[in-house]
Amino acid sequence: MKIQNTQKDNLHIENINNVKVAQTEMRNNHMNGTTGIIVSGLIWLTSGFVASSYSSKQAVWTLLVGGALIYPISIIFNKIIGVSGTQSKNNPLTNLAMEGTFYMLMCIPLAYGLSVQRIEWFFPAMLLIIGGRYLTFNTIYGNRLFWVLGGILGIAAYILFSLNAKCHISALTGGGIEIVFGFFMYFNARRIMPKK
């Protein structure tokens, strides 16, 4: 009985270590996800400027089209700063990242549908969607700051919705939060990343 419990404990420790190894690879090869946060923040800011200078409808499409470009642009930035932007094919966290992406994509029509009812609701809805997605990044990257980021985006969405904030205010708020967090996490990741 004691041998069986020891085997279970060893298997449990091995599984935890495998997750930690997978998270380390994701952190090191994607700069802890920070380039994606910064690129997303820039797209949100661009959308906010479009909303204030042109129209809210164009701002919605700016965020939707720009959002589709976040991953490829962040991969380019990763390569520029010297990280691969890819992970090994057998990294189990790749599936979680893809599942989170598909979940987010499945939620976007809800936000768009809200925008048809009232355009100001689109950006708070998107903040809730991406805030929820960031919660899974804690598991992917092993960094609890993603819980904080997701929570702050969710709270901001609620406040902006409650205040019936204009589109440009909501978009600029979301972009500002992501930029601040992105750069904070980037410099923190740079400090703790292994030297090559």
Rank of each mutant, 00 (worst) to 15 (best):
L69N: 10
W61D: 06
L114Y: 10
M98W: 13
F77H: 04
G66Q: 03
L69G: 02
M98E: 08
N91W: 03
T94R: 14
G67S: 12
Q58L: 13
G66Y: 08
L93S: 00
G113M: 11
L96R: 14
S84V: 05
Y103D: 01
G82I: 12
K79H: 09
P109Q: 14
I80D: 06
Y103W: 06
Y112C: 00
Q58S: 15
E99C: 01
S52E: 11
I81K: 15
T101I: 04
Q87E: 10
S115H: 12
R118P: 00
L105P: 02
V65Y: 11
L110C: 03
L114C: 01
S88I: 07
A59E: 15
A68M: 14
S115Q: 09
I80H: 07
M104I: 02
N78M: 08
K57T: 13
P109S: 14
Q58I: 05
C107G: 05
I75W: 11
M106E: 02
F122T: 03
I108F: 06
I119N: 10
S53K: 14
M104T: 05
V60Q: 08
W61F: 08
A68L: 15
S52W: 12
V50P: 06
F122I: 05
T46L: 10
I76Q: 15
W44F: 10
E120F: 07
S84C: 00
A111R: 04
V83W: 02
K89Q: 09
I73A: 08
W121V: 00
P72R: 06
L105I: 09
A68D: 03
V116N: 05
I76M: 11
K79D: 04
G85R: 05
Y54T: 14
E99P: 00
V60K: 04
F77G: 00
N91M: 01
Y103T: 08
I119L: 10
W121N: 07
R118Y: 09
Q58Y: 08
L69V: 09
T62K: 04
G67W: 07
Q87V: 15
G82D: 05
S53P: 00
F122L: 09
F77W: 15
K57I: 08
F49A: 12
N78T: 11
P72L: 12
P72G: 09
I108H: 06
F49W: 09
I81G: 11
G67V: 07
I80L: 13
V65G: 04
F102R: 01
Q87R: 15
G67K: 03
S47E: 09
Q117K: 10
W61S: 05
Q117I: 13
S74W: 05
A68E: 09
Q58M: 15
Y54C: 05
C107Y: 04
Y54H: 13
F77V: 12
A68Q: 05
G48H: 13
K89L: 11
V60R: 01
I73W: 01
